[in-house]
């Protein structure tokens, strides 16, 4: 039981309908991309949840660090002028 096989972890993304983005649904082990897709089909689309599968080796994903989230994201917090609600449009104009 001590030999570790090389079935790496793959992150699975499913597109549920045309026009929508792929969404992360979980992970699984597989020896290669082809088997990862087959396994993803068996495990994550049993109820017709998707029309497209992406499989990505887990080690290919780089995540931002939660400890650095403040300096990373706060620059956007005080830029309210990026939102449409910042701008006053008279009612006579209708929808803009």
């Amino acid at each position: 039981m001590s030999t570790k096989d090389n079935w790496k972890i793959w992150e699975i993304f499913i597109r549920s309908r045309n026009g929508l983005s792929h969404k992360h649904v979980g992970s699984l082990h597989a020896p290669d991309a082809e088997m990862a897709i087959k396994n993803a089909r068996d495990v994550y689309t049993r109820r017709s949840e998707g029309i497209s599968i992406w499989v990505i080796p887990s080690d290919a994903v780089t995540a931002s660090s939660p400890d650095e989230s403040e300096p990373l994201f706060t620059p956007a917090d005080d830029k309210v002028y990026r939102h449409p609600t910042f701008y006053e449009i008279p009612d006579e104009i209708g929808h803009m």
Partner: peptide
């Protein structure tokens, strides 16, 4: 099954 899948993956790589 696991061994065969491994061997196949290695061969492909």
């Amino acid at each position: 099954v696991r061994e065969a899948a491994n061997a196949y993956a290695e061969k492909q790589a």
